[in-house]
């Protein structure tokens, strides 16, 4: 179980250059966190604002909200990547499946990427040998001999297949997944759905941030609608999706 009490997260962002334009007029308040202070060089953004939440074992929560509503920040909070500026987090942290960058240079081969992933993420928690992992990913991804070629020669779909298979290689009890995970070409999509169902089926607790209603309906039973760093609605997933559709999509 994980408990968040009165949690806020303030992030400093360096302003890259000073524009002569008045950018404030174009700002949609539903997009992005709240800018709480601003200087010429630094803007402080309140990405999470006084959030209280309890995630119990077995909860499968879908995070719904506009871009910049705080979904990714909340995922990073529950994974222990961020710590709260105010408030307290107690309990067992989630395992992050957030970034989708290879651990090695794209000049190197897919096999090097798998080896790096195995050594960095899995060698201590699995009985599977590295060679077995490479065989498994070679078959599951369908890339076969292409794994011996540099990653930079892969198409985007091929790279996503490899990334997806690597990231679903080791199971975790509590997972936090960011949007866009597992999206790939139609031919591979059937495998992705089956694999995700099996992979996430072995997970006790799950928090997914996604814009895909289908994905949320497949894997989640509860929902949280986020806006400007706050939870604006929570409940069963269907009600959350309806709330989001009614309140935000019509603006």
């Amino acid at each position: 179980m994980l408990s968040l009490k009165g949690v806020s997260v303030l992030l400093d962002s360096r302003v890259s250059q000073t524009f002569k334009y008045n950018l404030g007029n174009g700002h949609d308040e539903a997009v992005g966190g709240k800018i709480v202070s601003s200087s010429r060089r630094i803007k402080k953004v309140k990405a999470i604002d006084n959030l209280t939440l309890e995630i119990k074992k077995g909860d499968r929560i879908g995070l719904i909200g506009h871009n910049g509503s705080g979904k990714s920040t909340l995922l990073k909070l529950i994974c222990g990547i961020y710590i709260p500026t105010h408030g307290v987090i107690e309990g067992e942290l989630f395992e992050p499946l957030l970034g989708r960058a290879f651990l090695v240079s794209e000049e190197l081969s897919g096999i090097d990427a798998i080896k790096a992933h195995y050594l960095v993420n899995g060698s201590r928690r699995t009985q599977m040998s590295m060679d077995r992992c490479i065989d498994l990913i070679s078959t599951q991804s369908g890339l076969g001999e292409f794994l011996s070629l540099p990653i930079k020669t892969y198409s985007r779909g091929m790279a996503e297949r490899l990334m997806f298979c690597m990231m679903t290689l080791f199971s975790h009890r509590a997972l936090a997944i960011d949007e866009g995970f597992g999206t790939t070409d139609a031919a591979f999509q059937g495998y992705v759905e089956k694999r995700l169902a099996d992979y996430l089926g072995r997970t006790d607790s799950l928090v997914i941030a996604s814009h895909s209603e289908a994905m949320l309906r497949s894997f989640c039973n509860k929902g949280l609608v986020m806006g400007s760093g706050r939870i604006v609605y929570s409940g069963c997933l269907n009600k959350c999706l309806d709330y989001y559709a009614n309140e935000y999509m019509h603006r």
Binding site: I81, L93, G99, A101, V120
Partner: peptide, 9 residues
């Protein structure tokens, strides 16, 4: 930066 921002390593 990508690994620092997205993993707990």
């Amino acid at each position: 930066s990508d690994r620092i921002a997205n993993t707990r390593r």
